[in-house]
Amino acid sequence: MGGKVTCTLGEVKNRADFIVYWGGNPAECHPRHFTKYTIMQKSRFLPRGRKDRTMVLVDIRETKSVKAADIFLQVRPGKDFELITVLRAMIKDQPVDDSAIAEIGLQRSDLEDLVARMKRAKFGVMFFGMGLSMTRGKHMNSAALLTLAAEMNAFTKFVAMPMRGHGNVTGADVVMRWQTGYPFGVSYHRGYPRYNPGEFSTVDVLVRGDTDCVFVLGADPGATMPQPAIEHLKRVPTIVLDPHVTHTSRLANVHITTAPAGIAAAGTAYRMDEIALPLRPAIDSPYPSDFEVVRRIHEAIRQKPDWRVRSPWIERQLDAAH
């Protein structure tokens, strides 16, 4: 188990005749997803657009996205992993107990129908949101769904993609990976990147009170993190860069207003499928860009004596000079 079988959004637009949204509410959270990339688009291979596509929504409650779906499967809260596991068994024609299905809160006939449709599809895609990845089971739920998508390729073309959000979170993830090998939760304390979600992720570092300074860029932990983390933000020097005054700005020592990227500042954003898009400013701003502020802070820090490890070569040069 592991990996990810995925594609860029244009593949979904051009080919996907079977689309599942799982644990997400795109109608409200990604309002242009339907029209730009998934169910509403016509293409060379799906000339009738919506009519050529089937959309399934899996969620624990009825959301505004239900109206857009052909099929809505209401899973019992916390039973997503069980449902995925049952589907993984059913696609391979393995026997599944009635009790296992009852536990999920669905009918066997619903699941049989779903499996038949998945196998009939020419190109299936599963988008999954935080309703799957941030509820009971967390990353194990995501891994199970990704595995289901991979295994479906024994029958037909199938892919899966997380519904990323929160501004340019995908961009941060991509850059961290090429510079450190890891997407997030990285510690540089030993001078090289180490990765341990649960230990080095921001929330854990704050809750433990391990930092003596916090620099917040493109995030609002003061609005989303648990109280002990927020208490620590108040205790230590906290610096916020943001176009708006955020909850975090209110508990920070320093707030620097920056020009919003893509509106008043240039830059790059990575789409949820990791395609880099150029951002061009439409208007001028009196405020500097995030990049400019970080550059100037970095410049100022460089004036301080360098405390980093010296390479043995430099040590020798210094010895020779003395």
Binding site: Q179, T180, G181, Y188, G191, Y192, V309, S311, W313, I314
Partner: peptide, 19 residues
């Protein structure tokens, strides 16, 4: 492991090394 120094930045080797 590539430890940052005054001349180099931190990173990881292995089969898919960082940039």
């Amino acid at each position: 492991a590539f430890i940052r120094t005054q001349t180099t930045r931190g990173g990881i080797g292995g089969y898919a090394p960082t940039t």
